[in-house]
């Protein structure tokens, strides 16, 4: 089973807002804020590795530049991916989700012979959740989002798709796109052997020319959406702390205050 995992390398989204500044409609992290594989993309890698361990095949990680995404791909290799490809070209800069999906789709097409394409459910920086749909539509494949479990029966995938009340069992034939939710797997921590092998690995870079992409369809030129403005919403702190000698007293005071506020 050949699996492609699309990953995004993003600034640590758990860093406090104070560690980002807004510059020209972009978020710029403070120096020292680490980049990491986006939330749920690492879970997608883990899901791919588990499928491979069960059914054989190979796992390829791909990521759309910038060049620093190479470190994210190294991490994917250290976790156990068989190969990685960096997609980097000045023409890709400032791509929106549509441009990104177009580049990833072209790369997947170039890789050929793919049974399953995994992505995270949404990137942790922009939280859009669009790219998986774009890849599926560009490649004409079915897509399932968001998945918390995937299994391969030998002829089809059974994907557990989350919905409000629980999950649905969806049968889908390969090749297909599945966007993974965080529950799908717990990403492994790479072994040192993996880290060492990854540090020696060569990661090829594919450009627009390599992918046969018309630069007018991607990057700034190919955008369907634009960012007008970024800002930080204000949160006002107004917490009233309930204190007391013991839990009973605290509980009684809290209940009293909630009643005064007509919340009970």
């Amino acid at each position: 089973m050949n699996i492609v995992v699309c990953i995004k390398y993003v600034p640590d989204w758990e860093a406090p807002a104070s560690q980002f500044r807004i510059e020209d409609s972009r978020l710029v992290p403070a120096p020292g804020i680490a980049y990491r594989i986006s939330d749920t993309d690492d879970e997608a890698i883990e899901a791919a590795l588990q499928l491979k361990e069960k059914h054989g095949g190979r796992v390829t990680a791909i990521s759309l530049g910038p060049a620093s995404a190479r470190d994210g791909l190294k991490h994917a290799l250290a976790m156990g991916c068989d190969q990685a490809v960096l997609l980097d070209d000045p023409a890709f800069e400032d791509s929106d989700a549509a441009g990104t999906a177009a580049v990833l789709a072209a790369a997947i097409r170039k890789l050929g012979d793919v049974d399953l394409i995994l992505t995270g459910r949404q990137a942790a920086d922009w939280d859009q959740g669009q790219v998986h749909a774009g890849i599926a539509e560009f490649l004409g494949l079915p897509a399932v989002i968001p998945a918390r479990h995937i299994e391969w029966t030998g002829s089809e995938f059974i994907v557990h798709r989350i919905y409000e009340e629980g999950y649905e069992e969806i049968a889908v034939k390969p090749p297909c796109v599945v966007a993974c939710s965080n529950e799908i797997a717990e990403p492994r921590y790479p072994t040192l052997r993996g880290i060492m092998a990854a540090s020696r690995a060569q990661i090829p870079v594919w450009t627009a020319a390599d992918l046969g992409i018309d630069p007018g369809r991607v990057g700034r030129a190919g955008r369907r959406t634009r960012v007008l403005r970024l800002y930080a919403p204000q949160v006002e702190a107004k917490c009233e702390f309930i204190e007391g000698e013991n839990p009973e007293e605290i509980a009684a005071k809290l209940v009293q205050r909630l009643r005064e506020e007509k919340l009970l």
Binding site: D12, G32, A34, R36, E186, R188, Y189, P190, T191, L192, R193, G194
Partner: peptide, 20 residues
């Protein structure tokens, strides 16, 4: 280092040390 069998809390510790 060899097996990658690490409790979740320790993985978080390692990640935090690495990143921050």
């Amino acid at each position: 280092l060899n097996e990658g069998r690490i409790p979740r809390d320790v993985v978080n510790l390692f990640n935090n040390l690495e990143r921050s």
